[in-house]
Amino acid sequence: MTVVRRAVLPLRATLVASFAMLVLLQVFSMPGQFRHMAEENPEDAELRWPLTIVAILVIGCVQVVIVCTWRLLTMVARDRIFTAASLRWVDAIIAAIGVGWLLLAGILLGLAGYWDDPAGPLLIILLLLAGGALGLLVVVMRELLRQATDLRSDLDSVI
């Protein structure tokens, strides 16, 4: 368990840095990017606010995953990961990944008539595939955590 405990601090530092960068994206980069897009292409100006809102929401989904991961790391550090409470945090991660996936799928479908270059749709399809794989992986890991939690509680009742 000491290797895991040593990994918690650097992982938390990475989570804090990632969260801070995502806040900068939400507050400055995405609104500015879509404002610039509307100025450069006035015919697409009606997309500015819907794209800004969806981008902020997708980033928010990633932030939810970071917060839930932080809580799970706290449980690992306290040797409390094999409890029913940890499953709720994993469920929140699965929900955030699902909402983010649906938002990206909505962008792909909603912008179908606007694409001039295949790079945009291909990038979103790649993100959808990666997000789907990540979501399914977390579902599998949740089941493993549930089984380990059940085994731990059985072992605790025997001892």
Rank of each mutant, 00 (worst) to 15 (best):
Thr2Val: 14
Val3His: 15
Arg5Met: 07
Arg5Asp: 14
Ala7Pro: 02
Val8Arg: 06
Leu9Asn: 08
Leu11Phe: 11
Arg12Gln: 14
Leu15Ser: 07
Val16Arg: 14
Val16Thr: 10
Ser18Asn: 11
Ser18Val: 10
Val23Pro: 05
Leu25His: 04
Gln26Ile: 06
Ser29Leu: 13
Pro31Gly: 00
Gly32Ile: 04
Gly32Trp: 04
Gln33Asn: 04
Arg35Gly: 01
Met37Ala: 10
Glu39Arg: 12
Asn41Lys: 11
Pro42Ile: 04
Glu43Leu: 13
Ala45Ile: 06
Glu46Asp: 11
Leu47Lys: 05
Arg48Trp: 01
Leu51Cys: 12
Leu51Val: 00
Thr52Cys: 05
Thr52Lys: 10
Thr52Asn: 09
Ala55Gly: 09
Ile56Ser: 00
Leu57Arg: 14
Val58Gly: 02
Val62Cys: 11
Gln63Pro: 05
Val64Phe: 09
Val65Ser: 05
Val67Asp: 06
Arg71Gln: 11
Arg71Glu: 10
Thr74Ile: 13
Thr74Leu: 14
Thr74Val: 08
Ala77Gly: 09
Arg78Ala: 12
Arg78Tyr: 00
Asp79Cys: 06
Ala84Cys: 02
Val90Arg: 00
Val90Pro: 05
Val90Gly: 01
Ala92Lys: 09
Ala96His: 07
Trp101Phe: 15
Trp101Gln: 09
Leu103Ala: 12
Leu104Asn: 01
Leu104Asp: 00
Ala105Val: 10
Ile107Arg: 03
Ile107Thr: 06
Ile107Met: 10
Leu111Gly: 01
Leu111Ser: 09
Gly113Ala: 04
Asp117Lys: 11
Pro118Ile: 11
Ala119Thr: 13
Gly120Asn: 03
Leu122Trp: 07
Leu122Phe: 08
Leu122Met: 13
Ile124Phe: 05
Leu126Asn: 12
Leu127Val: 02
Leu128Cys: 05
Ala130Met: 10
Gly131Pro: 01
Gly132Asn: 11
Ala133Tyr: 13
Leu134Val: 14
Gly135Lys: 06
Leu136Gln: 12
Leu136Cys: 06
Leu136Gly: 11
Leu137Trp: 13
Leu137Met: 14
Val138Lys: 03
Val138Glu: 03
Val140Tyr: 12
Arg142Met: 04
Glu143Asn: 13
Glu143Gln: 15
Leu144Cys: 10
Leu145Ile: 05
Arg146Val: 05
Gln147Thr: 13
Ala148Gly: 09
Ser153Gln: 14
Leu155Ala: 13
Asp156Ala: 13
Val158Tyr: 15
Val158Ser: 11
Val158Gln: 08
Ile159Val: 15
Ile159Arg: 15
